[in-house]
Amino acid sequence: MPSVTELYDALVASGQLKEDAAQREVLPVLDDLVATLKEEAPAPSRSGWRSWFGGQDETAPEGVRGLYLWGGVGRGKSMLMDLVMEAAPIDAKRRVHFHEFVQEIQSGLNEVRKRGERDAIRPVANAVADKARLLCFDEMQITDIADAMIVGRLFQVLFERGVCIVTTSNRVPEDLYKNGLNRQRFVPFIGLIRERMEVHALDSENDHRQGRAGGDQVWFSPLNRETRAEIDAVWKELTGDRQTSPLVLEVQGRKVEIPEHLDRMGRTGFWELCGKALGPADYLTLAKAVDLLVLEDIPLLSSSNFNEAKRFVTLIDALYEAKIRVIASAAAEPEALYLEGEGSFEFERTASRLREMQDARWGSDPGQGQDA
Rank of each mutant, 00 (worst) to 15 (best):
E205M: 08
H200C: 01
M197T: 03
E174L: 02
L223G: 05
G191T: 11
V199R: 02
E230W: 00
G211K: 04
G214K: 15
D207P: 09
P173Q: 09
E226G: 02
N170P: 02
E205H: 12
V187H: 02
G180F: 14
E230G: 01
E160L: 03
W235V: 00
Q210F: 14
G180W: 11
N206G: 03
Q184A: 11
F186C: 06
Q210A: 15
V172T: 04
R194Q: 15
V172R: 08
N224P: 06
H200Q: 13
P222E: 08
L202A: 12
F186S: 05
C164I: 04
G180K: 05
R196Y: 09
A229E: 10
R171T: 09
A213E: 15
T167I: 00
H208M: 08
R185N: 09
E230V: 00
N206P: 01
E226Q: 12
R225I: 07
E198H: 13
L202R: 08
D232M: 01
R161F: 11
G162Q: 06
P222K: 07
P188D: 07
N182P: 00
S221I: 04
L181I: 14
V234A: 04
L192I: 05
T227N: 03
W219Q: 06
P188E: 04
R209G: 13
I165E: 01
A213Q: 11
V166P: 03
G180D: 09
D175L: 14
I231S: 00
G180C: 08
N182F: 15
T168C: 06
L192Q: 12
N179K: 08
S169M: 02
M197R: 07
L181Q: 09
V234Y: 05
C164E: 04
P188R: 01
G162L: 13
W219S: 10
V163Y: 07
R209F: 14
E160G: 09
V163L: 10
R161E: 04
R209V: 13
G215K: 05
R185G: 08
T227Q: 02
I231M: 10
S169T: 00
